[in-house]
Each structure stands twice: as C-alpha cells, then as structure tokens.
Amino acid sequence: MSTIKPKHQRLVLVVIALVALVGAGLLAAFALKSQASYFYLPSDIVAKPPEADRAVRLGGMVEKGSIAHSPDGITVQFIVADGKARVPVRFTGITPELFVEGSGVVAEGHLQAGTFMADNLLAKHDEKYVPREMRDMTKAQAKAVIAETK
C-alpha cells in the first residue's frame, strides 16, 4: 500500500518534534527552577541571606507553639521552619483565616537583623482535606474513621 509510507513519515516527524518539544520544555522548566519559585524556604534564607532592603518571600511551616501576640493586639511573632532551618517572623496586621500553628504560611517582606519583617502574610493550605469533626480526634481515631468510610 502506497498510503502507508507517508503516514509513517509524518508519524516519525511528529514524534521527533514532540521529543524536541518536551526536551525544550523540561530544559526551560529546569532553568526556571530558582526564578519561578514563589518563595524561599527558611533554609534558603539562612544559607544565602538577602540584602536588607530587598523584598523577598519566605514560605514554610508555622512552628507549633511559636505564635506570640504582642500587647498591641495586632502584631504577631512566630517562627517559620522547613525542618532544616528556622526564621523568626514579625508581622503587624490582620492575619489570614488559615494562619494557624503547624500550617503553611508565605510572608512577604525583608530580612532585618535575623528577623523577617513581613508586610504581608498569606496562608498556605496543604493538600489534605479532613472534616472538622475529625480534627479533635487523635490520629489513631481519625484513621479508624477513615478506614470505616473506605
């Protein structure tokens, strides 16, 4: 059949183009790795502290038991950690609804004498979705409930 050949030719061409395309995409994504990140982790900030005036974003977990409210009522201090490093953060303003200990946070601001002075605070949600009734259960209880619903 004479129709087979050009069809295969086209298929090979398209496959080569696709491979080149995916390669280019992966390369671009890899090159963008540092630029395209929305925030720095505490370990990044500790390893390479940004200049004092430069605005950066710091993201990580709000360490359990670290949130301290100032007497003025609108200033909070807490520690953002990523398991490798810890950075103290200070923020004056209204915190987002999901800003709680043990949860993710992204702070916009600058580093000043080892403390991150945040102008803006964003909460980061994790990938878990759990009903409120299970919140107060112990891990074992929650697991049992989850196992039941499965």
């Binding site: 009522g73 209204i94 915190t95 800003f99």
Partner: peptide, 8 residues
C-alpha cells in the same frame, strides 16, 4: 487580629 470572612 484574625481575619473573619463570611465564608458562605
């Protein structure tokens, strides 16, 4: 101060 929005 914690933000409280009308979620619904």
């Amino acid at each position: 101060m914690h933000e409280r929005l009308a979620q619904w």
